[in-house]
Simulated scan of single mutants.
Amino acid sequence: MGLSLATAERWVQRWEHQQQRYAVDREDRFTVIADVVEHVTANRAHPLLVADLGCGPGSLAARLAGRLRTADIVAVDRDPLLLALARTRHADAARYVDAVIGEPGWTGALGLDRPLDAVVSTTALHYLSLDALRRTYSELAALLRPGGVLVNGDHLPPDDPALAEFTGRVGHRRAERLHAYDPEDWASWWTAVAEEPELADALAERRRRPPAGTGSAARLSLSGHVRLLRQAGFAHAGPVWQCGDSHVVVAIR
């Protein structure tokens, strides 16, 4: 059974709602990422080339495509069900690639024909181990043109545990005020999607694959990410936006 546009739209909309529980001011974070990419590519004459790492059902790719009309976006994810939703709901936003970020040789799957202008990611890179993250940052630095950027939105705590307690609390209270905890959660979404006949094949493929797991990078602080980025060859790296422990970090090649 094929996946219809109407079905994909329904499940992507529910995905967007449940993700509000986990990313404080998620829409603002998307907007900031697009602002950075738009700024750094403002005077580029050729079609822009952007990679979206851990694209899920195409949430960020679709927003970038709306802002950067001439951009070629390569969107990468390891989850066949989320990629099926992206390819149906946001078919024109990007070229979608099924690959495991951080595995040896994964960049070859991107099929790039020129240096990247920008790499973007949201709440995806923390699934990597520290060694895989270190290697991935170095690989991305090599793929970006001089002056290109890596823009990562994720939960990055401060080094000081006392401050981490405060940033976590600030983000939690902000989410409460926005009623972000009202929608269904991650587990409920996946339980519900398992009952969708049009996604049965994609779900079966997902179950055949090893789980992603949470890598040791999930515990890496903001300063830890900045340090790894500088070691990878980025000339500048640091946060440009923050709400609680949610940050947008920009690294300039």
Rank of each mutant, 00 (worst) to 15 (best):
D117S: 06
G168Y: 02
N152D: 14
P158L: 14
V149D: 06
G171M: 11
D160W: 08
H155W: 07
P158G: 11
R169I: 01
E139N: 00
R134L: 03
D160E: 14
V151F: 06
V119S: 02
P161M: 07
A141C: 13
Y127C: 11
L156S: 06
P115Y: 02
D131H: 09
D131G: 05
A109I: 01
F166G: 01
Y96N: 02
D98Y: 04
L143P: 00
A109Q: 08
G171A: 12
L125P: 02
L133I: 05
H126T: 07
H126E: 14
D113Y: 01
L116I: 04
G153T: 08
T107Q: 13
V119Y: 01
F166V: 14
D160I: 09
G108S: 13
G147H: 10
G102D: 12
G111H: 03
Y137A: 15
S129I: 02
G147M: 14
A141T: 07
H172I: 01
A162Y: 06
F166Q: 14
Y127N: 09
A141E: 10
A118G: 09
S121Q: 05
V170M: 10
A142F: 03
T107K: 06
D98P: 00
G102F: 07
L133Y: 07
R145E: 15
L112T: 00
T107V: 15
A109C: 02
G168I: 10
G108K: 09
D160L: 09
V100C: 04
G111P: 05
L130F: 02
L144I: 07
A124G: 07
L112A: 05
P158D: 13
L112I: 03
R173W: 09
T123V: 14
L128D: 06
G108I: 02
R114I: 05
L125I: 11
G102A: 08
F166H: 12
A99P: 08
V119I: 14
I101A: 08
P157C: 03
P104H: 13
D160V: 07
L130D: 08
L130T: 05
L116C: 04
P161I: 06
T122P: 00
A141I: 01
